[in-house]
Design a protein around this nucleic acid. Structure first.
Lengths: 194, 194
DNA sequence: TCTATTTTGTACTAAAAAGTACAAAATAAT
DNA sequence: ATTATTTTGTACTTTTTAGTACAAAATAGA
């Protein structure tokens, strides 16, 4: 318990790596790119992440997933109307920068880019999206209970629909990185919640 | 006008290359992979495609786009009810093999994987999806004219929604490669056409 | 059959990327 | 101060991949 002190924080560099992966995807990103973005050298990198790029990607995805899930859960719990919170969640997309639109959804990108479902990296991304669907469902059930969700549709099916809309937006916003157009699209989609 | 005869047909090898790209994505595919799938050597390859992998990908996407657009257009023109044709188009997804589900949509994959919109490869994929949206719109307008589309919604907006559903399905079917589940999802989405 | 032309296959070169080895640096504890 | 421990930076090795060079092969036409 001593030794030369680390010049970086794991969580911090994981976040920086996640940004690069988000922008460029997994395969298009070289370890060189990552080292530069993280601001550390090979020695430190391979000592901290023996699995190299793969391990980094997996951990970066895991971190982002945890962060996103925790935030959603927290905001949902704090919301007066869970259904309205879902609406806000989607509306946020139409308040993004062009750069964010170009990046799409980091998990959707992972699912699209990685080829086989057995791949742990892909699995993590898929699991996150299923988790998001689960949060949608929680919100809908609470809405039903509290009377703010009036739709006759099966909540589980509704949640699946929302997930698909989300997945679609990750692609569509890249093709049409325009907040006006996206807003119109999103508002229309949200009518299934009425 | 003579010389040693080519042992391959451009269109054919482009189709074979497209399959590989579809399965593995652009970056994850090496020229080696492509040569093997196409069944030709480096000499022939670089003579026919001086731009290497990039040129191949662009041409493979272009070919698949032309094929898909032509088929859609042809079947749409032959359809009695254009709106019902759109339904069939989506329903086909739920009659796929697991392998196809895993591949998703080759154009959606391209949009998700490639990072910048200025990239000619990405542009081609984006243009295709916009073209698909255009075909949806044509079908909807004809349906409106002929009285089979009863929705009050703006056809252009409806077309955009359909595109987003399509884009979403390209991701969702990879996460849930299950025809039953997909069918339920798709049937529900199609209610916007009623 | 000879020539011009084009394609093919392979051997080679070049470049890029990943990963390892290891000495030096920086600390805590003795 | 000395030692044990851990991290750092760099130089080096290995592997992978892309791309080129070029002689041999296969044709059409003269």
């Amino acid at each position: 318990m001593s030794g030369r002190p680390k010049i970086f924080d794991d969580q911090e560099v994981l976040n920086k790596a996640a940004d690069v992966f988000w922008r460029q995807g997994y395969e298009a990103t070289s370890t060189e790119d990552l080292l530069e973005a993280m601001g550390i050298g090979k020695g430190s990198f391979y000592l901290a992440f023996k699995g190299g790029k793969k391990e980094l990607y997996e951990k970066a995805l895991a971190l982002r997933s945890d962060q996103a899930m925790a935030q959603f859960r927290k905001e949902l719990d704090a919301a007066d109307d869970p259904v309205e919170y879902i609406r806000e969640f989607f509306r946020r997309i139409a308040h993004s920068t062009r750069a964010k639109h170009q990046n799409g959804c980091i998990f959707g990108n992972a699912v699209a880019e990685l080829s086989n479902i057995e791949n742990p990296m892909m699995k993590r991304a898929a699991t996150h999206l299923q988790g998001l669907e689960g949060l949608f469902l929680d919100a809908l059930l609470r809405g039903k209970q509290e009377g703010t969700l009036h739709s006759k549709m099966e909540p589980a099916l509704l949640a699946r629909l929302l997930l698909n809309n989300w997945n679609g937006l990750g692609i569509t916003r890249r093709i049409y990185p325009d907040n006006e157009a996206l807003s119109e699209l999103i508002e229309t989609q949200l009518k299934i919640l009425d």
